[in-house]
Amino acid sequence: MKEKNKLKEEKKLIIKFDASLYDKVAVLKTCYIFQDRCHTKTETEKNSSIKVILTPKKESADLQQIENQFWDELIDQQVRYENDNLFSDIRRLIVEQAFRPVSFADLKNKIKKHAI
């Protein structure tokens, strides 16, 4: 599923991919995490693709390794993003019940209302 359009220039990694596959939130969170090893830049392109430019902070960085790590992290971030959407109601219910508890029967009704 890896998109082809990567271009390795002098110590710079350009990764392009279809924006419909990954949410912007997942892309930005991946770039954020990569700031420990790279300067990151994101651009959107006309043909609905996203371009990420990674410039390693260390001269000795292994570009292939960075690219592999980037794809792995991007997929995990996309899963997390989808999980967050899936879990947001349940999470809120757990925290609410923890700090403002209601009876078991009332909790059951609340859960029904949220159509979980």
Binding site: V95, Q97, P101, L107, I111
Partner: peptide, 17 residues
């Protein structure tokens, strides 16, 4: 039924906090 696990998780969360 998700009520019981949510109830239990909330209790454990409250203990942790």
């Amino acid at each position: 039924d998700p009520t019981l696990p949510i109830y239990l998780l909330a209790t454990k969360y409250r203990t942790k906090k």
